[in-house]
């Protein structure tokens, strides 16, 4: 039993079988990558994990509880954070405010009417937010408008927003999509530091093999909505089936 267990999940969109009998188990404190060609069902699977989609059949258990039928904010409160393909941040707010919102969500739950105490009185949370910003080297951009940051900084901010909630599971949807090589390498370094410095399970959907092979402990290859193989990166590299379905196709 892993921290995340996906059992016999099926999802159909009209005539298209997006996911067919997906079984997946993510062990605690590992980095699990899901790779596969375009249209393999990676994003559909991810959306089933965070409550955006509900599978037609099957079960998704997180930390001993089912996530099915729960709203995205309830699933986040259970301890799953998500990083999007294009960074989703609060662009009209400052970097600092972007960090405070997940802290409030963590402390106060999905809704609390805190209408009269000023944000500036939350000394403990402010210190925590600044510490996290320091950790991702963004303290100098504390009062910038988040919308004005570079793409790489937006990505870093989004990850910091997820991490500050101390999630048990961090889902990353193509975290380096559309990034320049240097930014990609920075992101890899950041993820490596995160992995080393705290107890966290990560599940990465990724196109870039360089990212996958430098981070993942285990890899699941998805093709046409079904897991093809699941193994360590070394084994995956040489697997004939994978070469045929994925790497071969790419070449």
């Amino acid at each position: 039993m892993g921290i995340l267990d996906v059992r016999d999940v099926n999802k159909r969109f009209g005539g298209l079988q997006a996911l067919g009998n997906v079984n997946l188990s993510v062990a605690e404190n590992t980095v699990h990558a899901i790779i596969g060609p375009n249209g393999a069902g990676k994003s559909t699977l991810l959306n089933c994990l965070v409550g955006k989609l509900i599978p037609d059949t099957g079960s998704v258990m997180f930390d001993g509880q089912s996530v099915l039928g729960r709203k995205p904010y309830e699933i986040n409160q259970m301890g799953i954070s998500r990083v999007f393909q294009t960074p989703e941040i609060f662009g009209d707010l400052t970097v600092f405010e972007n960090m405070m919102i997940p802290l409030f969500a963590k402390r106060d739950g999905s809704f609390r009417m805190h209408a009269f105490e000023g944000v500036s009185h939350e000394r403990g949370l402010i210190a925590e937010a600044e510490k996290m910003l320091d950790e991702v080297n963004m303290l100098d951009k504390r009062d910038f408008h988040a919308g004005s940051l570079s793409r790489g900084d937006k990505r870093r901010l989004e990850m910091a927003m997820c991490l500050i909630q101390r999630p048990k599971l961090l889902l990353l949807d193509e975290p380096t999509a559309g990034m320049a090589r240097a930014d990609t390498n920075n992101t890899i370094e950041l993820l490596k530091t995160i992995k080393k410095s705290r107890d966290i399970t990560m599940c990465i959907i990724e196109h870039d093999m360089h990212v996958v092979f430098s981070l993942a402990d285990r890899i699941t290859v998805l093709a046409q909505g079904t897991p093809l193989v699941e193994d360590t990166p070394e084994k995956i590299k040489g697997h004939p089936k994978v070469k045929e379905a994925y790497l071969g196709e790419a070449a």
Binding site: D92, I101, F111
Partner: peptide
């Protein structure tokens, strides 16, 4: 008030940050 501005800015991020 900060939450209300966050609603205006990005509802998707708000929901995935555990807020309704």
């Amino acid at each position: 008030g900060m939450m209300l501005r966050a609603v205006k800015s990005n509802q998707q991020r708000l929901y995935y940050t555990g807020l309704n």
